[in-house]
């Protein structure tokens, strides 16, 4: 378990190798993830989301630079889409973060979604833990450029920074369900463009219609390329984090995200077991019988579940011996 020792010391190569293992072979990675779990839960996880091209990477870059001035160790997970057609991906978020790659206390990992919907990749949650265990204090998770329904970031991050910019559409876009519901802090980037003030008013009106909560998501202005407004964003983020800590909100959020994670892992596990234990021919047979109306799908599912449970128990026994 040399690699774990190295990871806990902050070794970048160990972290990078473990992340690859998580992406390529989750079952193998589990062995390590079990070991590092006790060392996680320290870092603050900040989700950065918004439509493509609004400036997520640039804002992440600027925020990271500010944090580095205070000595904070930063991890960044930058997710870009994987082609559903070829399985390939062009991961280009680093272009906006060039200066950061020379800083040994910043660890950036680019990821393709690899068929995972929701704006993240399947390996995201485990990668957060790896960065956390290696000693990163703040972890930014930059989602793919999202449309309207990619809201998974809410369940893995302690807070969500929702970035948008003028000229993305009319006010109906803002009151649609989905993405606009998940921001804890809103940022209107490229604020020197026409329509900025109107957009801010529209977002504020949308927020005013929400049920009254103690935290009113602020709407901030930035011009990320020049750094304008970034300090304000940084202060607001940490103001919100301390509010979360004091109000018990952080604990609540993390409980919810742990609940979600356990359920997801369980589903995943049963999926794997299904592929492992239900023989293809047998499944074909069952399908034929269902089509012929000799059996119904509901009874069949119960029967398959019984087989899975029995096989799983048998498998555990084999493992013990």
């Amino acid at each position: 378990m040399e690699i774990l020792k190295e990871l806990l010391k902050g070794n970048r190569r160990a972290a990078a190798k473990l992340i690859s293992l998580v992406e390529d072979d989750f079952t193998q990675a589990e062995i390590f993830l079990k070991q590092i779990y006790p060392y996680t839960g320290q870092a603050i996880v900040i989700g950065i989301t918004g439509p493509p091209g609004v400036g997520k990477s640039t804002i992440t870059d600027r925020l990271t630079k500010n944090l580095r001035k205070q000595g904070t160790k930063v991890g960044i997970i930058a997710i870009d889409p994987t082609s559903p057609f070829t399985g390939g991906a062009l991961l280009g978020d680093r272009i906006r973060m060039q200066d950061l790659s020379a800083d040994p206390e910043v660890f950036i990992r680019s990821m393709g979604t690899r068929g995972f919907l929701g704006g993240l990749s399947k390996a995201t949650q485990a990668t957060i833990k790896i960065l956390d265990a290696m000693g990163k204090e703040v972890i930014f998770v930059e989602t793919v450029g999202v449309g309207q329904a990619e809201v998974d970031i809410v369940r893995v991050a302690d807070m969500v920074l929702l970035i948008t910019m003028p000229g993305m559409g009319d006010d109906i876009q803002i009151i649609k369900a989905g993405i606009m519901e998940i921001g804890d802090v809103f940022v209107v980037n490229k604020a020197d463009r026409d329509g900025c003030e109107r957009l801010i008013t529209e977002i504020e009106m949308m927020l005013a219609l929400k049920p009254e909560t103690k935290w009113k998501p602020p709407v901030l202005k930035t011009i990320a390329t020049s750094g304008t407004g970034i300090k304000d964003v940084e202060e607001t983020i940490f103001h919100y984090i301390s509010y979360l800590k004091d109000s018990g909100g952080l604990e609540r959020k993390r409980k919810e995200s742990t609940r979600k994670e356990i359920i997801d892992l369980l589903r995943e596990k049963w999926g794997i077991l299904f592929n492992q234990y239900i023989k293809k021919d047998f499944l074909e047979e069952v399908i034929t019988r269902v089509i012929q109306r000799k059996e119904d799908p509901y009874t069949v599912v119960n029967r398959l579940s019984d087989i899975l449970i029995k096989s799983y128990k048998q498998g555990e026994k084999d493992y013990d011996q």
Partner: peptide, 13 residues
């Protein structure tokens, strides 16, 4: 081209 060949390509600028 590498992307279209199914690889994950990181481009840094």
């Amino acid at each position: 081209a590498l992307r279209d060949a199914g690889m994950e390509v990181i481009y840094t600028g």
